[in-house]
Simulated scan of single mutants.
Amino acid sequence: MRSLPFGLLDRRFAPAPAPGRVAFLKGRRFAHRGWHGGDLVENSPAAFAAAIARGDGIELDVQESRDGQATVFHDYTLDRLTAERGPVIGRTAAELGRIELANTGTYLATLSQILHLIANRVPVLVEVKSKRRQPARLCAAVRDALHGYAGPVAVMSFNPEVGRWFARHSPATVRGLVVTEENDKGCPGRSRRHLALWRARADFLAYDVRDLPSPFAAAQRARGLPVLSWTVRSDADEATVAVHADAPIHERP
């Protein structure tokens, strides 16, 4: 028997969201890790305040602390942006909250604290950084931080298990799949992307701008999944996004 085409399987296992559910993702610029550069450090309160002042949405990252809290930080280790060393998950949220960000006088914060700062003023993309096969504890921490938050917000991850967890345990939360085709553009890579989409039951894609245009991204966009694109840093990237995506996640002055 002939195998079903990917398009039919996509509609079966990752149905397109209702348009109103994802409308806030379109036609909006998102500042990648906040508006950072110069004296403004990525994923810091100052970077988020600067994005809000410019009317940008915010993309931020969360890592799991040792006691299972969602801490706003990109790297898996503290080395690059703090005077400390070692994995983020090796410290409790309270311990992380005493670590200064790159001599800025500000400190690592929890997702709840940052959402309180943003206060519903702009849309937020929460990228869940998890290498774990079962990221349930971090996903639950993100869900708890989002509880009662009234602003437009979505979660996303390279790890399709994150989307799968939210589809099961917090279906009202908009969920996305982060995708790069780097070194994986052949038929096996195409199959892996569809499998990840089905596993995550994604409402939208956050796509590597270097891979656009992409038949996979175009097919999902055509059936109603918004495509955001990262990381936009040039006029050429902007032109690509204008044609092949719905919003940039950018690092541009």
Rank of each mutant, 00 (worst) to 15 (best):
F24P: 00
L4S: 12
R21G: 05
P15Y: 13
H32I: 06
F24H: 06
R29P: 00
A31S: 12
L25V: 03
G34M: 13
F30R: 10
G34Q: 10
G7P: 06
L8R: 02
A18F: 03
P19S: 10
D10C: 06
P15S: 10
A18H: 09
F13M: 02
A16Y: 08
W35K: 12
A18I: 03
L9A: 08
G27H: 08
A14E: 05
R28D: 05
G7E: 14
P15F: 13
R28I: 09
G34I: 08
W35F: 15
R21L: 09
R11E: 15
G7L: 14
R11A: 14
W35P: 04
R33T: 07
G34N: 09
R21Q: 14
D10N: 15
F13V: 09
F6P: 00
R28G: 01
L25E: 04
A16C: 09
D10Q: 12
H32V: 02
G7T: 13
K26N: 03
A16L: 13
F6T: 06
R33H: 05
A14P: 01
P5I: 10
G7S: 15
L25I: 01
G34K: 10
V22G: 09
L25A: 08
A31Y: 02
R21N: 06
A14R: 01
G7F: 15
W35Q: 09
A14W: 04
F30C: 11
A23G: 03
P17D: 07
R29M: 01
F6S: 05
A14C: 06
L9C: 12
D10R: 15
A14V: 02
W35C: 13
P15N: 15
R29Q: 00
V22L: 12
L8T: 00
V22N: 14
R29K: 00
D10A: 15
L8S: 08
L25M: 04
P5E: 15
V22Q: 08
R33A: 10
F24R: 02
P5A: 13
H32K: 07
P15T: 14
G27N: 13
A16D: 06
K26P: 01
P5Y: 12
L9G: 09
L8E: 05
P19A: 14
G20T: 07
F30A: 04
G34P: 04
F13C: 09
K26Y: 03
A23P: 08
F13G: 04
R33S: 06
F30H: 08
A31P: 00
L25S: 03
P19D: 05
A23V: 04
L8A: 06
P17S: 10
A31Q: 00
R28L: 05
D10L: 11
A14Y: 03
R11L: 14
R21P: 02
R21A: 11
A18E: 13
A16W: 02
R28M: 11
A23S: 11
L4H: 08
D10K: 09
L8P: 00
P19E: 12
P17H: 08
R11Q: 15
A14I: 01
F24M: 03
P19H: 05
G27S: 13
D10Y: 08
A16E: 15
F30V: 00
F30S: 02
G20I: 10
K26R: 13
